[in-house]
């Protein structure tokens, strides 16, 4: 018996045909291709600053990796500590050698997921307020955290932004007494990344 493709045997009425065309047009107009599930970047920007009356310390890392799965809301971030660029040499040296011990703990990671995936329509351009929950690992210490952020869908890409604070003590980062007044106990962290569909 010859098998026939049932799709070929469906005779489409004009009304059905119109619906089909509209559906196809809607698919094409989606902000994100229907096939795209994972979005990725190698250029995630992670910036931090420590503000005290004595000193303002800033550093930026522009080569972080980030990946998000739009089906599950799971995401992973990774930055290499040595890639934080400072303005002042001594700050960079102290940060790497004394506080973060970057030769021993060369990276910081976050593995988590959106807490409410249904609040984001990945098929529609717009900015969504989101929360992410997961495990942050800094200086070899893992901690469960929940951070707020925004997720912007547009131009076929996903832009993620988040501002949060990290307490040095939570990650066993010891600040010596001599410079304690110059370094804040809580560091402000700013994250920004534009993720494109994975090919």
């Amino acid at each position: 018996m010859t098998k026939t493709n049932p799709l070929l045997t469906i005779s489409l009425s004009t009304r059905h045909m119109k619906k089909l065309i509209l559906f196809a047009a809607a698919l094409c107009a989606l902000a994100i291709p229907a096939s795209a599930q994972k979005f990725f970047t190698r250029d995630a920007k992670v910036q931090f600053n420590s503000d005290t009356p004595m000193e303002k310390i800033e550093a930026v890392n522009k080569s972080g990796t980030a990946i998000i799965d739009t089906q599950t809301g799971k995401m992973e971030w990774k930055v290499l500590i040595k890639n934080f660029i400072f303005e002042k040499a001594l700050m960079q040296e102290h940060f790497n050698e004394n506080y973060m011990e970057s030769s021993k703990f060369p990276n910081a990671t976050f593995k988590g997921a959106l807490t409410d995936l249904s609040s984001v329509n990945f098929g529609k351009d717009g900015t969504y307020k989101v929360k992410t929950k997961g495990t942050m690992e800094i200086h070899g210490v893992k901690k469960e955290i929940e951070v707020p952020g925004t997720l912007t869908i547009g131009g076929g890409a996903i832009t993620i932004k988040s501002d949060f604070t990290v307490a040095c003590a939570d990650y066993n980062i010891q600040i010596p007494g001599v410079v304690r007044e110059k370094i804040a106990k809580e560091i402000n962290v700013k994250v920004e990344a534009k993720l494109n569909p994975m090919k």
Partner: peptide, 14 residues
């Protein structure tokens, strides 16, 4: 440059 480690690629800073 200064080797920062492996993050998919091996990264060299500065």
């Amino acid at each position: 440059g200064e080797c920062a480690g492996l993050n998919l690629d091996v990264q060299l800073a500065r």
